[in-house]
Amino acid sequence: MSRRGWLLFAAMSLIWGVPYLMIKVAVEGVSVPVLVFVRTAVGAAVLLPLALRSGPLRELRRHWRPLAAFAALEIIVPWWLLSDAERHLTSSMTGLLIAASPIIAVVVARLTGDAERLDTLLRWAGLGVGLVGVAVLAAPELRGGDAWAITEVLLVAACYATAPLIAARRLRDVPALPMTAVCLTFAALVYTPPAILTWPDAVPGPRVLAALAGLALVCTALAFLVFFALIREVGPSRALVFTYVNPAVAVVAGVLVLAEPLSASILVAFALILGGSVLATARPPARSGGVRRRTGRLRNTIGS
């Protein structure tokens, strides 16, 4: 990976490792629709002027179907589910469950005809180990009555695994900035009616407002710019590898800031999910007769 790739990787590891903490704080003071609306509306307000300065947006009309699908799978559906789940789950557990995204991405890519294949015993083993880790983490919560919250987070992981494939296959000719701005604007419009209906009667406290601002400006506006730059640099499958580090950031933030528990099961699940993800997404060794240049092909999946 290039130096630029590593810098983008480190930035995404941090930027999308802390949203779980901020969401946990924000849902204490506002409804889920208000949270998602503020996050998308402020993000769109920041990015739209920049996108308009780069050129007219009418060229995006011919891509409206994949744009709508991407917006639904990357923003509209998962951000609702994630925020709703964190009303019942700790931020650290949520971050760990999201770490299953690379495993799901490998399966989805394989089922939809991607060149990425589960063609070695090691990768199959990684898939199994990662799923065991998810089971270790989710089992106590399932017994405790939070089965729907666990399901919500796993659905979010599936959305996050699928959306980059749409971006790589159907939106590779669309510049990242206009695409992000349009998707956030669309999401904000979708959430406007439910946000109005559930708007708080009083101004939330400073802690909640700070969390909302961080989610909108850092974890949304800035994060998407870095995310698409990372996809262009290393490809969609490898771009999701930063989720290996996100759980560690989420756990540390939850323990230090919110005093969330750090149990043995969380540590075991983290090791299994992380190890399984690494194995499941590992590159197979080059075969005799030539080295397969998958990385080069992946780096060209999105152009701006």
Rank of each mutant, 00 (worst) to 15 (best):
L57H: 03
A69K: 13
R53P: 07
S92A: 06
M93P: 08
E86R: 00
W64Y: 13
P102K: 00
S91N: 08
L111Y: 12
R53E: 08
A51H: 04
H63K: 04
R58G: 14
L67Y: 03
A109H: 01
I98P: 05
A100E: 04
L52A: 14
L89W: 00
R61N: 14
P56E: 10
G55R: 15
L57E: 09
R87N: 08
H88P: 08
L82T: 06
L73C: 10
V108S: 03
S83C: 12
R65K: 15
M93R: 03
A105G: 02
A68D: 14
A51V: 07
M93A: 13
S83F: 05
S91M: 11
A69G: 13
E59C: 14
P56K: 13
A71G: 07
A105S: 08
T112Y: 11
A71C: 06
R110Y: 15
M93C: 13
A72G: 06
I98H: 00
A71L: 03
W79H: 15
L97S: 03
W64T: 15
L60V: 07
A99P: 03
I75P: 02
A99R: 00
A72I: 01
R110H: 15
H88I: 11
R87E: 10
A105I: 02
D84C: 15
A51E: 09
W79M: 05
P66M: 07
R58P: 11
S92L: 02
L89R: 01
T94V: 02
E74L: 13
W64R: 12
H88V: 14
L111V: 02
V107I: 07
T94R: 01
I75G: 09
R58C: 14
S54M: 14
G55P: 10
P66Y: 06
E74F: 05
T90R: 04
A71P: 00
L97P: 00
L60C: 04
S101C: 04
R58H: 11
R58M: 15
R87Y: 10
S101F: 01
L96K: 01
P56V: 04
R110W: 14
F70M: 06
A85I: 00
L52W: 14
W79G: 04
S92D: 02
L96I: 06
R58F: 12
V106Y: 01
T90N: 06
E74W: 14
L96F: 12
L82K: 10
L57D: 11
W64K: 10
E74R: 07
A99I: 06
I76G: 08
L73Q: 05
A109C: 15
M93N: 14
L52S: 08
P102V: 01
I76N: 14
W64L: 11
A51F: 05
R61Y: 13
D84H: 07
L96P: 06
D84F: 10
G55F: 10
E86I: 07
I75M: 15
S92F: 05
E74N: 07
L97Q: 02
L89P: 09
L111Q: 13
L97E: 00
R65I: 15
F70R: 08
S101P: 11
I104N: 02
L60A: 09
A99V: 01
W80A: 13
A100S: 11
R53N: 15
A85C: 04
R53C: 10
S54C: 13
S101W: 03
L97W: 00
L81P: 04
S101D: 09
